[in-house]
Nucleic acid binder design. Structure first.
Length: 267
DNA sequence: AGTACCACCTGACGGC
DNA sequence: TGCCGTCAGGTGGTAC
């Protein structure tokens, strides 16, 4: 799930349900891999007795400000999400690796089935982004900065969009959706895209993310012009031209696209 | 600079 | 039903 829109939906939920609540207890389960260097005690010391006082997001990373004590960082990998409860009972506990139990009796749980996510502490989201070579959040780019990011770039536009050092937040699913809406083939060489195509991509990025966030990042609630809900669906048809979506491997990932809406450059 | 492949994990799904 | 291969929305290392 977790690309920029998904994480933004998680952030809004945390903002609504976590803000101002005091963490009484930090519970870790089989979380060594997720902590990576951080000791369980560091996390407990940072959080216990403190309230969550703000939320932030940079690309696919979610941050929660710990009142007077730095920031908690969560990265969701391919399978992570947050769940909430008013009581002590944690849903799907087998895949929950971190629980923040609030003083008021409720909790928030970090569910991460495949354990490909990360839990960390940082001085600030900005410091974290800088230390981890993350480019600007994809939703904060303006058209000029986006266009310039394509200059002198080889490889594929799909690979470029997913490069977190250039812009943070776009992953496999949404790179396909942005390319589909913009009518650009995933293997196009970035430097060869003309200004009009760059403008279409920039606009598609903003529109796709805005609409996906509005849909709660749930494919079933996305506009019927979206390709995302049609992935891997037998007999699916392109909502624009009726053609059959196809699959290719691009930049090592599975790319879905519409061959008639997104013709290969030069063809 | 960019890609290919492997690794990390735990499933879900399709074919036989 | 069971077994097996393949694939999965992320990222990091290494090799080319």
């Amino acid at each position: 799930m977790p690309e920029l829109p998904d994480v933004e939906v998680f952030r809004r939920a945390l903002q609504k349900r976590g803000l101002g609540r005091v963490v009484a207890q930090v519970e870790l389960h089989d979380a060594t891999r997720l902590l990576e260097g951080l000791r369980p005690d560091d996390l407990r010391r940072a959080l216990e007795g403190h309230s969550l006082s703000a939320t932030a997001r940079h690309g696919k990373h979610l941050f929660a400000h710990i009142d007077g004590n730095g920031w908690l960082m969560l990265h969701f990998g391919m399978t992570g999400f947050l769940s909430y409860g008013d009581g002590s009972q944690v849903e799907d506990a087998a895949h929950v690796h971190l629980v923040l139990r609030f003083r008021d009796g409720g909790h928030v749980a970090f569910n991460n089935r495949r354990k490909l996510g990360r839990i960390g502490l940082t001085d600030s989201p900005e410091a974290f982004a800088a230390a981890n070579d993350l480019g600007p959040d994809a939703l904060t780019l303006d058209a000029d900065a986006f266009g310039a990011a394509l200059d002198d770039r080889g490889g594929t536009i799909k690979g470029l969009l997913m490069n977190q050092e250039l812009m943070a937040g776009i992953g496999n699913i949404y790179s396909d959706e942005i390319l589909f809406q913009a009518g650009v083939h995933p293997k196009t060489v970035p430097a060869q895209l003309d200004p009009a195509a760059r403008r279409r991509l920039f606009n598609a990025l903003g529109e796709v993310f805005r609409q996906a966030i509005d849909a709660g990042a749930d494919p079933q609630r996305m506009p019927d012009t979206f390709l995302t809900p049609l992935r891997r669906q037998k007999g699916a048809r392109c909502p624009y031209c009726g053609g059959a979506p196809a699959r290719l491997t691009v930049a090592g990932r599975s790319a879905w696209f519409c061959p008639c809406r997104q013709p290969e450059a030069g063809s």
